[in-house]
């Protein structure tokens, strides 16, 4: 499948805040109420469209447990975007955000776009963290903020897409060095040869795929 850009994301945050569910909702459009603990890191992918361009998102969903922290740190460097998730019904997950942010800032490249996400917005009755608090934290640390619900799918698309938009804008501004793959951004195969390769690929099937590169 041809794409203009490929962005690498990571999802981080405390255990049980719904990282894997967010990913599952985004890639498979379904919600799984009972989910096993993520071991290490799991992978998911989806194609989106921004500004008329196909963009492929590769998402690594990390384990929130402390025991995996040293492993998940290895993923910060190569990611263009990060979703930092907390649970609005559990105050302590919000309190830990500073630690997560420090960790991310220390190990990632400085241009990484970080989206702060307060998940489980469907559980309004059990809310412990006000939306304003999330907004304030995001403002203070220069993050984009959104409240989502992986269960009802509210804002899930937007969270992933807005992060991509932010990255896309940074590319347009020339902030990202798109030729350095360590930034978590890759230019798609069709980008270099414009529309010609697309038509060729469609016509000749798989065999022509190798030739256009």
């Amino acid at each position: 499948m041809a794409y203009a850009y490929l962005f690498k994301y990571i999802i981080i945050g405390d255990t049980g805040v719904g990282k894997s569910c967010l990913l599952l909702q985004f890639t498979d459009k379904r919600f799984q109420p009972v989910h096993d603990l993520t071991i290490g890191v799991e992978f998911g992918a989806r194609m989106i469209t921004i500004d008329g361009k196909q963009i492929k998102l590769q998402i690594w969903d990390t384990a929130g447990q402390e025991a995996f922290r040293s492993i998940t740190r290895s993923y910060y460097r190569g990611a263009a975007g990060a979703l930092l998730v907390y649970d609005i019904t559990r105050r302590e997950t919000f309190n830990h955000l500073t630690t997560w942010l420090e960790d991310a800032r220390q190990h990632s490249n400085s241009n990484m776009v970080i989206m702060l996400i307060g998940n489980k917005s469907d559980l309004e009755s059990r809310r412990e963290v006000k939306k304003e608090e999330g907004e304030a934290f995001a403002r203070e640390h220069g993050l984009v903020f959104m409240e989502t619900s992986a269960k009802t799918a509210a804002n899930v698309e937007e969270a992933f897409i807005n992060t991509a938009k932010e990255i896309y804008e940074k590319i347009q501004e020339g902030v990202f060095d798109i030729n350095n793959e360590a930034n978590g951004i890759k230019i798609g195969p069709q980008h270099s040869t414009a529309g010609g390769a697309k038509a060729g690929g469609a016509g000749a099937g798989g065999a022509a795929g190798g030739g256009c590169c």
Binding site: M1, V41, E42, F43, G44, A45, Q58, G206, G209, G210
Partner: peptide
């Protein structure tokens, strides 16, 4: 399975063809 998924999604199967 995570890497297989990545391999599949990253269109690497096509790259094996040659």
């Amino acid at each position: 399975s995570s890497n297989i998924n990545f391999f599949k999604e990253g269109s690497y199967i096509q790259k094996m063809l040659p």
